[in-house]
Amino acid sequence: MKIIDSIQKISESSSVAAIGFFDGVHQGHRALINSVRQEAERAGNTSAIVTFRTHPRQVLDSDCRFSLLTTTDEKLELLEKTGIDYAIVLDFTPEMSLLSAREFLQLLKENYNIQALFIGYDHRFGHNRKEGFEDYTAYGKELGVQIFKAEAFSMDKTNISSSIIRQLLETGNIKQANRFLSYRYAITGNVIDGFKLGRKLGFPTANISLLNTEKLIPAHGVYAVETVLPNGEVRDGMLNIGNRPTLERQGDYSIECHIFDFTGDLYGKDLTVCFVSYLRPERKMNSLEELKAQLKEDKQNAILALSQKSIS
Rank of each mutant, 00 (worst) to 15 (best):
L271K: 01
E289D: 15
L288N: 07
L291Y: 10
N286A: 15
D270I: 14
V276P: 00
T272R: 15
Y278E: 05
P281F: 15
A293P: 00
M285T: 10
L295C: 01
T272V: 04
G264R: 08
L271V: 00
K299C: 12
L295W: 10
L279G: 07
C274R: 15
Q294W: 08
Y267H: 11
E289P: 00
E282Q: 08
I259W: 04
F262M: 04
D265A: 01
L279E: 09
G264C: 11
N286M: 12
T263A: 15
L295G: 02
R280K: 07
K292I: 04
L295I: 11
V273I: 13
K299F: 09
K284C: 04
R283P: 03
D261M: 08
E282N: 02
K296F: 14
V276I: 05
N286H: 14
K284Q: 06
G268M: 02
P281H: 12
L279P: 07
K284P: 01
G268V: 02
P281D: 11
P281S: 12
R283W: 12
Q294E: 13
R280N: 01
R283K: 15
Y267A: 11
K296Q: 14
L279N: 05
Y267W: 08
E289L: 11
V276Q: 00
K284V: 01
T263N: 15
K292S: 05
T272A: 12
Y267F: 14
L266N: 08
G264L: 08
K299A: 15
L279Y: 07
C274V: 05
K292N: 02
S277W: 14
K292T: 10
P281V: 09
E282K: 02
E297Y: 10
K299N: 09
S287Y: 11
E282P: 00
D298H: 07
D261I: 05
K269R: 13
C274T: 12
F260Y: 10
M285C: 12
V276M: 03
K269P: 08
G268I: 04
R280Q: 06
K292L: 06
F275S: 00
G264F: 09
D265R: 14
K269F: 12
N286D: 15
D270N: 12
K299G: 08
V273T: 09
E290M: 09
Y278S: 04
E290P: 00
L279R: 01
L266E: 09
L266F: 10
K292G: 01
L288A: 04
I259Q: 06
T272P: 06
G264E: 05
D261A: 09
E289Q: 14
D261S: 07
C274M: 14
Y278P: 02
S287N: 02
D261R: 11
K292Y: 09
R280M: 07
H258W: 06
K269D: 06
P281W: 03
E290S: 07
Y278Q: 03
T263P: 11
K269T: 12
E282F: 01
L288W: 13
H258A: 00
